[in-house]
Amino acid sequence: MKPQTLGWTLLMVVGGAFLIGRAVLTGAGTVYVQDVEIEVEIEDEAEEEAQVVTLQRVEQVPPNARSEPGVRLSYVHTFGLWVAAACTLGIFSFLWGDNPLYKVTEAIFVGSSAAYAMVVAFWSELVQNLCGNLLPDLMRETLIPGLKVEEPNLWYLVPLVMAIMLLWRLMPSGGWISRWPLAFFIGATAGFRMMGYLEADFTQQISNTIMPLIVTGADGSFQFWASLKNMTIVGSVLVCLTYFFFSVEHTGPVGWAARLGIWVLMITFGASFGYTVMGRIALLAGRLEFLFDDWLWLIDPLGRRLDM
């Protein structure tokens, strides 16, 4: 075994032993829950008295409530917490280099996210909208009791047929059949996006830029900073648009304006970059908080383990 590999292996073994020891001694990495019973009354027309049905729910509780009556250790959630921690560490391990642990977590991520998207699409679109409109009575009795659609809407046979045509793409021949629903897709996106962008972005942004260059207060006094801000915004938008306007050669006054536009755009890109990095760092902080707070119990920012 190479000295480097041996070193890492020893580090992992010591780290693992520390985690297990800490989990045994302090209870770190455990999740506690309590069972909640909800009683619901059902009005039955045939019977005079309302029938009462009891529903069971499981609620997570903070660790410092673990000695309270009714609170128990949840093996399912505790296992989940350790799986989540292993997955988080598995993805982070890529910082060290490509390795089997990262590949395993990546494979889990690909499989579970594909199925997650499919399940969400199935329940929220296919069952709710397609089956709900084609078979309203059956859906009301089985999957969607509160469905408001009364009569079957046969127009929904069109998306059903197009759905079958789209799935034809998986067949070895006749792939061109899927072009019809694809064309519907492209046409709908083009029409919807065109109007959406023209309305919400184009006209709205121009409308927001038409602002007073001389700002006065309620008492009629001149507001220097507000006026300067408005002038800067209007001027900056105009010079940026001048830079984007390629029908005129960028020389003379147009060239100077375009040059100013580049500077404004550079400031915009710099600000966007800083903002994006901060967003990612916030996510990173969230993951570290999960590892050190929820899993290892090394920090307690929310005071969930006070008096333990």
């Binding site: 699409a121 296919l126 197009m162 789209l166």
Partner: peptide, 15 residues
């Protein structure tokens, strides 16, 4: 709505 149904089917196709 039809667009959303087809988008849902696209997830099935992808899967």
């Amino acid at each position: 709505t039809w667009f959303n149904i087809l988008a849902a089917i696209a997830f099935v196709l992808g899967a």
